[in-house]
């Protein structure tokens, strides 16, 4: 049995074709400090330059044995391209992701999305970075992502406005969600045309810790469905937080696979979804990979537990926090590759 390259492994899994062993990959950020250091840069500078982004991604994957790279790392690119200024925290010693300190728009009426937004701000870097990665690390699968419309609206407006607007300004909220959904479809298509291998729609701001399942059904699900229909396969859907009440609806949105975080019990999740849905998750990205108090063995148990629980691939439940404990991180990846040799519910083995 020939061993697959990481990219083949991921792409075959996403098509539910038999593979050699379970991949360790993600739909969200996979950049880690050892990779950033090996590429010779510091954290605040990897967000603004294609070479730096590409090489920090490649080295993160190579050093840790990830099956993929994922770009971008931060959530502010689109909002910045719409005219907002970001904080990069260039002087901070801590790892801080770029944020939007103040938003130019303060009401639901102002949102306007520029034409060809992928040509604006830092977005063009992504196409260049994909090219560099393809040339230099053709063995790795390249993942890109887009925020879902509700979470993206929270990057463009105060989230309060959207949350309250659901009840008080329903039409305006729907209108903004539609406009942003159009943008997400367009950027996703552009990323796919630029050569990314799979794309993830991540909508962390809508789980049952924040919105009711009813609101999800009425406001969010139809838009996620429309966005996913606008993209080519392979395409994934990720929601953070309490997702058990949403899983059945998530599986109707048209994604090729679903991913969840630590708040979802994967065993229960698998019961809800049945054996055929490609279902991935859900490493606790702080306790298992960053907390010095967590012994390596506990991280290994964590991975085995989720494989036994019925996932098809091990994924971090969120962006990996870059300040990993290398030993634990590697143990997570190695355990996935070693313990994942048997078929999973939705994917067979070669």
């Amino acid at each position: 049995m020939a061993e697959l390259t990481p990219k083949e492994r991921v792409l075959r899994l996403l098509r539910k074709e038999p593979i050699d062993t379970m991949p360790f990959f993600s739909g969200m950020g996979m950049v880690v400090m050892p990779g950033i250091e090996k590429s010779g840069y510091n954290f605040p500078t990897v967000h603004t330059d294609a070479e730096r982004m590409a090489w920090s991604a490649i080295w993160s994957a190579r050093l840790m044995n990830f099956d993929c790279v994922v770009i971008p790392y931060d959530m502010t690119m689109e909002s910045e391209a719409m005219g907002n200024t970001i904080s990069l925290y260039a002087d901070s010693e801590d790892i801080l992701y770029p944020t939007i300190p103040n938003k130019i728009w303060s009401t639901l009426d102002e949102v306007e999305i520029p034409d060809k937004i992928w040509e604006k701000g830092r977005l063009p870097i992504l196409a260049d970075a994909i090219k560099i990665i393809k040339e230099n690390a053709p063995e790795l699968a390249i993942g890109c992502w887009q925020l879902g419309p509700f979470t993206q609206a929270g990057q463009v407006l105060e989230l309060d406005l959207m949350l309250k607007g659901i009840f008080k300004q329903k039409e305006k909220v729907e209108n903004i969600l539609d406009k942003i959904s159009d943008m997400i479809i367009d950027i996703g298509k552009w990323l796919q045309a630029s050569g990314c291998d799979y794309i993830t729609l991540r909508e962390p701001g809508v789980a049952a810790d924040l919105l009711s399942p009813k609101t999800f059904k009425n406001f969010i699900q139809p838009r996620l469905t429309r966005i996913l229909a606008g993209w080519e396969s392979p395409k994934l859907l990720h929601i953070c937080g309490k997702t058990e009440p949403l899983l059945a609806m998530m599986s109707e949105c048209g994604a090729d696979g679903l991913t969840v975080d630590i708040k979802c019990d994967v065993k229960k999740g698998r019961e809800i979804l049945g054996p055929d849905v490609l279902f991935m998750g859900n490493i606790d990205t702080y306790t298992m990979t960053c907390d010095e108090k967590t012994p390596k063995d506990k991280a290994i148990e964590h991975i085995k537990g989720m494989i036994d629980g019925g996932i098809d691939a091990v994924m971090p439940g969120c962006d990996l926090w870059p300040a990993i404990i290398e030993e634990n991180m590697k143990a997570c990846v190695d355990t996935t590759h070693e313990y994942g040799k048997n078929p999973s519910p939705a994917v067979g083995r070669l």
């Binding site: 949350l163 309250k164 009840f167 049952a208």
Partner: peptide, 14 residues
């Protein structure tokens, strides 16, 4: 009790 979610709480706060 999960009868209210965050949007409702914010409106109550207003």
């Amino acid at each position: 009790k999960q009868e209210y979610f965050v949007p409702e709480v914010l409106m109550c706060a207003d």
